[in-house]
Design a protein around this nucleic acid. Sequence first.
DNA 1: CGTATACTTGATCAATGTCAACAAGGGTGG
DNA 2: CCACCCTTGTTGACATTGATCAAGTATACG
Lengths: 245, 245
Amino acid sequence: MLWPAARSGLAGSAAGPLSSDEKLAFATLATTVQFGKNAIIYRDSERAEFLYLLLEGAAKSFTTLPDGSNRGVTFHFPGDLFGWPEDNRYAGAAQALKSATALKIPLEALEARLRSDPGLALVLVRKLRYHVVQQYRQLVLLGRNDAIGRVATFIALLERREQEEKGIRPLRLHLPMSRSDIADCVGLSLEAVSRAFTALEGRGVLSFRSKRHFRVADRAAFQALVGHIPATVKPKRAVKEEVQA
Amino acid sequence: MLWPAARSGLAGSAAGPLSSDEKLAFATLATTVQFGKNAIIYRDSERAEFLYLLLEGAAKSFTTLPDGSNRGVTFHFPGDLFGWPEDNRYAGAAQALKSATALKIPLEALEARLRSDPGLALVLVRKLRYHVVQQYRQLVLLGRNDAIGRVATFIALLERREQEEKGIRPLRLHLPMSRSDIADCVGLSLEAVSRAFTALEGRGVLSFRSKRHFRVADRAAFQALVGHIPATVKPKRAVKEEVQA
DNA sequence: CGTATACTTGATCAATGTCAACAAGGGTGG
DNA sequence: CCACCCTTGTTGACATTGATCAAGTATACG
């Protein structure tokens, strides 16, 4: 076990396969379910009765606007807990990207158990905290307004996720989602995403083995793009900061 | 008490002033701190030792990129719990928008207490879940690519937040943050935000009493903008959906 | 009252959305 | 095993939007 210390507290990573205490916590509560590729896990605004903890595969959450476009796409990987309700209804829909298995956790039973099992509480809080930080990273990503920077940062987040899960930085990355899904996630058109990938390969930053298989070929250039290092440096004034009252 | 039922479970709103059980949960753990306008609450990547639960005022979280621009801005209002760490360090900085008071909760003590106090766990999970949904809404907002729609949606979220807190939809809204802060939050330049406000007033959607004080004058038009109802309807194909394996 | 900050407005231009056509790839059934 | 088709991805041309630079106005604060 590589992570016993990191996973015990409130902080630390909550990515990757379930630890033994997590398995224990959900064992008698949840049932395992299988989803085929593109299967809908739950629908937007549907009455929320279960949380889902992904065990294998990949899934996405999204909100479909009246005009038919998908927004707020986020991706879920093994270890992710998703399907949190607002006013007892799901905020967004969820769909499997490929064949996937998940733990289906009844909210009511979870809540009841929570009142008597502090270990479960700690697991939940850790998962939620991890989710919050993940989403925050996506918010930062979406604040950028250059297509290449967004796509590069998206890849950096995927890579980081793999690294947290496996313990080492993966040599190659695989994209379980389509260009269109990526576009909805990073707030670009799918054409812009495609062009960004092409540009990244053209510059020698990424090297593609197939459409969804690649590796980071030029680490320095990649980090520069992710870190948003501008070619022409233009310093701005520091944040105004006053004394603590 | 208006919300006893809504606030007891895992779902339901976690916005607004603290309920009695929340006060109890943190009473012996936390200390109250005051922040002056623009005071830094914590810095990016600083070692995280406390969570903050805002009692009064308003604050923002943000990440400053190497080029000096702020990204991933989110706003905090009374009842919000923020300052969640990743690997024991804050992901982003936090700053008071105006004079504010907050509960400063030591993470270590919180974790220790969590192991024995299921009531506290429920409060924490509810706050975190609320935060996750709030962030998700911002992700959806940032997916849009029309400036007016983004600003309108931003206002809708503020309004919704007030409504959850007070129980009724507020007649007038007050913006505790600058145009520049809004710009960083919705991913636009501050000029674009300014123009969007001007356009919204020009179309009679909003009516300004002062720069930061306004009301929604044309509810229908406002909802149309928020709902992203396009002038020319262009239906797209439905999501492919396969059977649950 | 004066100065710094916040906000507005205008002009220009690069970047991305959109529309359109085409290429590639994967799966299915003959 | 091959041919076909449907989905996914790429590339090009063009129009539009918002970023940027710049100037000016309003507001708040000392």
